[in-house]
Design a protein around this nucleic acid. Structure first.
Lengths: 296, 296
DNA sequence: GCAATAGTGTCTTTAAGACATTATGCC
DNA sequence: GGCATAATGTCTTAAAGACACTATTGC
C-alpha cells in the first residue's frame, strides 16, 4: 500500500497487514474457463496420493472444458487460483484474496476478491482459519491471513460471467465474447484439487484444511446440495458426495440415508433421454429443525 | 500504541489492529482466586436458561473457593475475565487478550496474555474464530479479533501461581502469599459460565461459540481428559462430560463407551476413604491411530 | 431380449440407551 | 447388616453397510 519507503525494521513496528484468502470449490470449472496445468508427472503422483485410480486422464491439458461436462470430470473438485505478479512468490499460483479495506467486513472482502477472479458470486461462504505465523512473509511487513472457503453451484458457473458490479443478465449472443474475455486473463485458472501446482505462502496447507472442512461438513450438514441446481436426481447428489469423499458410495444405502434426512422433495418430474430407466427429480427443502455443529 | 495523536479519519486509513482474545475453561476456579459476581437475579435467570436446576447456590458470592472443591462446584464450567480500564467498554468485563506484537505467533500471544491474567499456563489451546466486523469498535481504529479457546486442568490450577516468567517451583510456605497477591488484583476474576456478567465488545458471542466448540469436541476428541490430573476415576471423567454437556450421563453406558475408546489404562490403584466401594484409577494414553476432524 | 441405471427389500453387524444385577468399602 | 457407589450384564432399538432383487427406459 503506502509503506514502500519504509525500511524492514520500520515495517516490523507497524500493525500486521490483514488479508483474506479463499478456497472456492466447484464440481467442474465454468465453461470457457482457463484450465491450469501442473505437469503430468506431478498429476500422476497427486492422483495416486489421494487414492484416485486413473484420474489423471487429462492432466496437463490447457484446453477448454466441453460445454456438456463429461462424467469423468465430475468425480473431482475444482478450484480457481490466481498467479502472483509481485514478490514474494511472484509467478506462483495463489488463492484469490487481498487486503481488507477499512470499511469492508471480512466476508465482504472474500466475496469481492473472489468475484474479481472468478467473475461470479459464490453460493456459500464460511470462515476457515486464521494464519498468523511470524515468518509467513519474510522481510516484509507481517501478514495475518484469514482464510475462507466457498462453494460454487452448477447454476453459478453454467451461465455468463459478470462484467460490471451489478451486471447479471446478458443475452445469449454475448456469451462467447464473455467467455473469450474471461479466458484472456492468463493469471486466473481452474485446477483440479487432485492436481494442484506449487502454491505461494502456506496456501497448500490452507487448501488441505478447506478440503477437510468440506468433507466433514458434507457428512452432517446440507452444503452438498449447493453444488447442484434447483432440481437434481439422487444419482447426481450421490456423485457430489463421491467427489467430496473421493470414493464410491453404495447407491441403495445412499438413497435410504438421503431420503431419511427429510430435506428432499419429490418434484414428480423425471429425467429422460438416457438409455436406461429415468430418474426422479428432487428439490432441496430447508428443514425447520436446523442444528449446527461447531467442531474442528 | 503510537497512534494517539491521529484523528478518527486518519486511523481509518491504517491497517486494522489485530488482537487475540481467549476463552479459558476450567472445572473450577483456582484456589485463592477472586470470584466474580454478576447479581443474584441474573444468576438465577442464566442458570434456568441453561437448564441447570439449583445451580445458583452461591450466586453473587465473592468468597474464596474452599480448598477441597465441593461436588456442587463441579457441575459447571468456570472461565477468567479481565475488567477493562480504558474506553471503549471501560469497567466492563472482557476476555483476556491483547494486540499481537510483530514477533509473536497468534498462539504465543494467546498464551502470554492468558498467563498474565491467570498466572498459569493452559493445558490446551485452539484457535476458535476471527471476528472482523467493521463496527466492532466504533470511532476507533478498526479491530480484528482472533479468538482462541483454552483449557486448564486440575493440576494447573491446584498449585501455586506463577510470579516470574519461568517461575514454577514455589515451596509450600509461599502459597498463601502468592494466593493473597493473586487475589489482590481486582481486575481479574473467575466466573461460572452459567452466570456471566455483561461482556465488552462481542465477547459474549465468542464465549457462546467456545462453549459450542468445547461441547462438540468432547464428543469425538480427547480434550475432556485435559481437565483432569494424571490419574482419575471413571466417575471423575463422567463428571467432566456432565459439566460440559450440562446433563446427567448414565454411568454404565458411559463406562462402556469410555473404555471402548482405548485411551484408558488401568493403573491397578484404587481410591480409598470414601464411604462406598473404591473406584479404579485410570490413566489417559494417547492412541496411535489419531484421527482429527474439521467441522464447524 | 439386452444393457444400464433407478429403485426396493433384506440380512448382518454395530452401537447407543435403558435398566437390572452384582460387588465392595465404610459406617 | 445397611448404605452408597463401583462395576458388570442384558435387552431393545436404531442405523449403517453389504448385497440380492425388481423396475423401466433405449437400443
Amino acid at each position: 500500500m503506502a509503506y514502500t519507503s519504509m525500511s524492514v525494521s520500520e515495517r516490523q513496528l507497524l500493525p500486521p497487514a490483514v488479508a483474506v484468502s479463499t478456497v472456492a470449490f466447484a464440481l467442474h470449472p465454468p465453461a470457457h474457463a482457463r484450465l491450469g496445468e501442473s505437469g503430468v508427472e506431478a498429476a500422476y503422483a497427486a492422483a495416486a496420493a489421494v487414492g484416485f485410480a486413473g484420474a489423471a486422464s487429462d492432466a496437463g491439458a490447457a484446453a477448454e472444458v466441453p460445454a456438456e461436462t463429461s462424467a469423468r470430470a465430475r468425480d473431482t473438485l475444482w478450484l480457481p487460483l490466481v498467479r502472483r505478479t509481485r514478490a514474494p512468490f511472484a509467478g506462483d499460483w495463489a488463492l484469490p484474496g487481498g487486503p481488507i479495506p477499512f470499511n469492508e467486513t471480512l466476508a465482504d472482502t472474500a466475496v469481492r476478491t473472489l468475484r474479481a477472479a472468478v467473475l461470479r458470486d459464490p453460493r456459500y461462504l464460511e470462515q476457515l482459519y486464521s494464519f498468523g505465523a511470524v515468518e509467513r512473509s519474510a522481510q516484509a511487513q507481517r501478514l495475518v491471513t484469514i482464510a475462507y472457503w466457498a462453494l460454487y453451484g452448477e447454476q453459478d458457473l453454467a451461465g455468463d460471467a459478470l462484467t460490471g458490479a451489478a451486471e447479471q443478465n446478458i443475452d445469449e449472443q454475448n456469451i462467447d465474447e464473455q467467455g473469450a474475455a474471461e479466458q484472456d486473463d492468463p493469471n486466473v485458472a481452474w485446477f483440479s484439487a487432485d492436481r494442484l501446482p506449487p502454491l505461494a505462502f502456506d496456501h497448500a496447507e490452507i487448501v488441505a484444511h478447506a478440503l477437510d472442512r468440506l468433507r466433514s461438513k458434507t457428512e452432517y450438514s446440507t452444503v452438498a446440495y449447493r453444488f447442484l441446481g434447483d432440481t437434481f436426481t439422487l444419482a447426481q447428489l450421490r456423485e457430489v458426495h463421491e467427489a467430496v469423499r473421493g470414493e464410491a458410495v453404495d447407491p441403495a444405502n445412499f438413497r435410504r440415508q438421503a431420503l431419511a434426512q427429510g430435506h428432499l422433495v419429490d418434484t414428480g418430474e423425471q429425467t429422460s433421454g438416457a438409455k436406461h430407466r429415468p430418474a426422479r427429480l428432487y428439490q432441496f427443502r430447508e428443514q425447520t429443525t436446523q442444528q449446527t455443529r461447531n467442531l474442528t
